Simulated scan of single mutants.
Amino acid sequence: MSQNDNAGPAPWDHSLEDALAGLTSPGPVDLTLRILRHVGISHERYDAYVLLDTDAGGLYAAYSPTAVTGSALESMVVSPEMFEEIHWQRTGRTAIRSTMPFPGLRPALRTGRAKSLPVDLTGLDAHERAVLEAVRTVPKGQLRPVSWIAREADVVDVPGVNGFVTGTLARNPLTLLIPCHRVTYEDGTPCDSAYTPATGRALRSAEGIDMLRLAELFRRGGVLLGSDTTYIYCHPTCAHARRITPPHQRPFRTAAEARGAGYRACRSCRPVSV
């Protein structure tokens, strides 16, 4: 008997195990979608979704063949599985991971201009949809107060209208794509009911909105800003207001005060006339 006959079994070669494991790799991310399409499962039963980079971090965005159906910041959910569960509970459709975003989604996120992006607000009532559609019209880099949103959505007669608007923003199913960070209370304080304050600050900063300048203006009573050369008053973040040089700026507390001083409302930002 040789010396090796008493040595017992040879130790397991872990390098071989590692090499064999390397031969197995996960399937393509889109494989499940390909299979569903191949076997003819109805599109009405599932949505695809992607994870995209934004100024506020990763964004999960789900979509059907015709519209974006839901989105949430990565910081708002603990995992892709949680996003999938939330999407299923809200829409009744399974969300399946993909690598191909909905057409036009990347440019909308990059430019901050998602007003023309098709979205699906199924599950919301007519007033809630009107509020979120009004928010979609607020231009990048500008802010509008809750009263402006209520007027544009034609919900001013809804009982507790301010609470209704802010509550609808908090339930916004299309984070970032419906830019709730562009809505403020009447005193100019950000209405970040759809975001954490840090997220709202990051989004407004990325759009060049100077909240310190606005806070100083509001401290001086300037909810609206007029030009003593054109005699037009605007929301302070309106593109026209930003062109008013400091010597010609005239702050106003209300639209009535501005009209009383002989100023007329900007036709672009259309301040509420109260």
Rank of each mutant, 00 (worst) to 15 (best):
M1W: 08
S2Q: 11
A7V: 06
G8W: 05
P9Y: 11
A10I: 08
W12C: 07
H14C: 04
G22N: 12
L23G: 11
T24S: 10
P26Q: 08
P28H: 14
V29C: 00
L36S: 02
R37Q: 13
H38D: 06
Y46N: 04
Y46V: 06
Y49I: 03
L51W: 06
A56D: 09
G58Q: 02
A61V: 00
G70S: 13
L73D: 05
L73C: 03
M82V: 11
E84R: 15
H87I: 07
R90A: 15
G92F: 10
A95S: 07
P101K: 04
P103Y: 09
G104A: 05
L109M: 06
R113P: 09
A114W: 06
K115N: 12
S116N: 15
P118N: 13
L121H: 12
L124T: 03
H127T: 13
E128I: 01
V135W: 02
T137Q: 12
P139W: 08
P139F: 09
I149M: 00
E152D: 14
E152W: 08
D154F: 10
V158K: 10
F164M: 02
V165A: 02
T166R: 05
G167V: 05
A170Y: 09
R171H: 12
P173W: 04
T175Y: 01
L177Q: 01
I178T: 09
P179E: 05
H181R: 06
H181W: 09
V183E: 01
E186S: 08
G188S: 05
C191I: 03
S193D: 07
Y195T: 01
A202Q: 14
L203F: 05
L203V: 02
L212R: 08
L217G: 01
R219A: 10
R219F: 10
R219G: 12
V223K: 01
L224N: 02
P236Q: 06
R242A: 11
R243W: 00
T245K: 15
P247D: 14
H248T: 14
Q249H: 12
A261R: 15
Y263S: 07
C266Y: 13
R267V: 10
S268E: 15
S273T: 10
S273L: 15
